[in-house]
Simulated scan of single mutants.
Amino acid sequence: MINRDPIFADRRDAGRKLAQALRDEVFDDPIVLALPRGGVPVAFEVAEEFAAPLDLLFVRKIGAPHHPELGLGALVDGADPQVVLTQSVMQMVSPPPGYVDQEVRRQLQEIDRRRQAYLGGRQALPVRGRTVLLIDDGVATGGTVRAALRGLESAGVGRLVLGVPVGPADVVASLKSEADQVVCLATPEPFYAVGLWYRDFDQTSDEEVVDLLAQAAGRREPRGLGQRPAEHRP
């Protein structure tokens, strides 16, 4: 019989356990970025552990003409937004000139709308040269996380760390080439779905996101953690 007992009580519990797993790491002036909405309660606990600023990282799919479910790539939010294109799909679809630029502008407007709703229009924190901890509540296929990591890489982060409570072993292994460090607390087999491993996996509300971001913003100024210089991928 397959054991499917939940590993985490809820996202806050998962965040505390992830923070504990990261506790002994030395991060130089880190920023914690959450993939909304489900990643926010997890990331909040990690940001609290390191007294680090907490921000959101929006990732928006760039759909193909007349087939929006087919992704040409993704737009990754930030102070310097990055477009991550999947060249094999681009070659297959061959979108008309100007199409991608038009879609990028449209998705930027949507990101601005969401940032206004969650953060009152606060601009994204700059990440160039900084240690970034990217946090979500889990990975399944890894598509969104992979785009986010590649966007952050293009934005010039100093050190890139992915932290998730749970994910399938093969996907987690495949993401290790996209970051300096990947921390995943559990890789149960068979995996099935992220929510299966939480006792409470109700959808994170907009109100909870706003509340947690406000709490993080009201916290004292971040303390410096360690003197280790930022590490770079070879």
Rank of each mutant, 00 (worst) to 15 (best):
V32P: 02
V32H: 12
V32W: 14
V32C: 08
L33F: 12
L33Y: 09
A34M: 11
A34D: 06
L35S: 02
L35Y: 03
P36G: 13
P36Y: 11
P36I: 13
P36Q: 10
P36F: 09
R37A: 02
R37C: 12
R37L: 13
R37H: 04
G38T: 03
G38M: 03
G38H: 01
G38P: 10
G39R: 01
G39T: 05
V42K: 04
V42C: 12
V42Q: 00
A43W: 08
A43V: 03
A43D: 08
A43F: 03
A43Y: 05
F44S: 11
F44C: 07
F44N: 07
E45A: 15
E45F: 12
E45D: 12
E45T: 11
V46N: 09
V46Y: 06
V46C: 10
E49S: 04
F50C: 11
F50G: 00
A51T: 06
A51Y: 00
P53K: 04
P53G: 07
P53Q: 04
P53D: 13
L54A: 08
L54T: 12
L54M: 12
L56S: 13
L57D: 09
L57V: 14
F58I: 00
F58L: 14
F58H: 02
V59A: 14
V59D: 02
R60M: 13
R60K: 15
K61P: 10
I62L: 15
G63C: 10
P65E: 11
P65H: 09
H66N: 15
H66A: 15
P68G: 06
P68D: 04
P68R: 08
L70P: 02
L70N: 02
G73E: 01
G73T: 01
A74M: 05
L75I: 01
D77K: 01
G78W: 10
A79M: 04
A79P: 00
D80H: 11
D80L: 04
P81L: 06
Q82Y: 07
Q82E: 15
V83P: 08
V84I: 15
V84E: 06
T86C: 00
T86D: 14
T86Q: 14
T86A: 06
Q87G: 01
S88H: 14
V89Q: 06
V89S: 02
M90N: 05
M90Y: 05
M90R: 08
Q91S: 14
M92I: 01
M92T: 11
M92K: 12
V93M: 09
V93G: 05
S94W: 00
S94H: 12
